[in-house]
Structure formats: structure tokens, C-alpha cells
Nucleic acid binder design. Structure first.
Lengths: 109, 109
DNA sequence: GCAATCGTCAACCATTCGGTTGAATATGCT
DNA sequence: AGCATATTCAACCGAATGGTTGACGATTGC
């Protein structure tokens, strides 16, 4: 459990991996397509995807010869909840609160 | 900005540092007192505190010969906001929502 | 003044990390 | 069958990480 937080936060600590997650926010992608906008090698991207997978932040499903990468946002929940534990010391953040609420209402209807 | 996320997430990726943050949630502490429950050396703790400071997660103020460590939860906000961007894909999390709301009400009165 | 306490610095060590390159393994196309 | 495409594996490299120990600079109290 604490170990999960280790791997999740470590995975998030790299800008390339965060960029990959943002890309996957749009849509599921094949490994080669994930790699396309980056300057680094495909093998490096493959490693990053392995780290994201081990952290539970994405899942990879091989269909034919292409492996599809899918965002798995549930894994962020534990980390998010952990961070919220510190929120009580923040001045009340109405902006964040209202955005949160708006999203909930929008998604719920 | 993306660089900030790097250092914040990297700082959170270590269980010792997360434990330190949790301790500081209770109260401000001197470096020696922070180190007390851990088995590792004082120098190692000093390094961890340096990393947390550089990430902006704590501040350290030297008063006399003792250096006080204080939680700085604002630094978590950017990281938290970044993570919330993925929240819209989560199923509605009413538990978290209600806890959030309860804290806001409690802190606000 | 002097000894004890608080904390950091410097050098070192083993391990991990992010990257490369080249070979290997599937799978698909014709 | 044979070639191209998709992805990973393996070995390697330099830099960063988390830890240690011992010396050092401040500060406090007797």
C-alpha cells in the first residue's frame, strides 16, 4: 500500500511519463504512436510504459501486433487521497472546490 | 512549472519523506526530533529534509541552534490540481467528496 | 572557557534511472 | 515464403539516489 504510493509517485515524477498520461487522456494509443512526438528512442518509451503499467496508471492490451495503451485513472485515487490529507491545512480553496463540484454535477447528470 | 511537478512528485516518491510529512502534519518539529523514530542516520534525515525543502513541501527556520521544520501544504496544490485533471474519468467518488466537504465546513467555521 | 548538543558538509558506496544501440520476437501483408 | 512493421530484450553508459561515516561550524549551558 505504501509501496503502491512509492511506484505511483515515482512514475509521476518524470515529465515524459506525465506527458504520456496526458496524451492517453485523449484516447487509447499504440506504443509507436505514443513514441511519435518524443525525441527519445522507442525502447525508452517502451520502458516508460512499463513503469506506468507497473504503477497501475495504464494498462496495455496486445491486439494483433500492436499493443494498446489505456489510461487507468483509478490508480491515481490512492495518491490523490493521500495528498488530500494535507489539504486541511490549506486555506480553503474555493476555486478547486467549485471546479470539483462542477465536474461532479456535470458527470452525474 | 513542469519542473516543480518533477521535484514535488519525486519528493513524495520516498516513504521516509512521506512519513516525515505526516509527522509534520501534527506539529512543527526540530530536525533531531524528526529523525528520532527512524533507524537511519541524522545526516540521511537532513538530506531528506533538504529534498522536501527544495520541493517546497516544507520550510526550515533556524532559531537558536535548532532548526524548525514546518509543513508547507501549498506546494501540494499544483500536483493535486494536475492529478485532478484525470479525475474526470473516475467514477464519482462521493466518499472523497463528502470528506472534502466536511473538512471545508469544519475548517471554515 | 569548555563540553555537549544541533545540524550540515564531504567523501564514499551500492543501486537505480533514463537513455542508447543492436539483436530478437511476433504479427501482418502480399 | 519473405519482407515490413510493432514491440521488447539485453547489454551497456553516465548521472542521480539513498545510505554511511567522520569531520566540522554554531549555539547553548555549566
Amino acid at each position: 500500500m505504501s509501496d503502491d504510493l512509492d511506484t505511483v509517485f515515482a512514475a509521476l515524477a518524470d515529465p515524459t511519463r506525465r506527458a504520456i498520461l496526458s496524451m492517453l487522456l485523449e484516447d487509447d494509443m499504440a506504443v509507436t504512436d505514443v513514441a511519435e512526438p518524443f525525441k527519445i528512442s522507442l525502447a525508452a518509451i517502451s520502458k516508460h510504459l512499463g513503469i506506468l503499467t507497473r504503477a497501475g496508471l495504464i494498462t496495455q492490451e496486445k491486439r494483433g501486433r500492436v499493443k494498446w495503451c489505456k489510461l487507468e485513472p483509478d490508480a491515481l485515487r490512492d495518491a490523490s487521497v493521500w495528498m488530500q490529507g494535507f489539504g486541511q491545512f490549506e486555506p480553503i480553496n474555493l476555486d478547486a472546490f467549485e471546479r470539483f463540484l462542477a465536474r461532479e454535477l456535470d458527470a452525474g447528470s
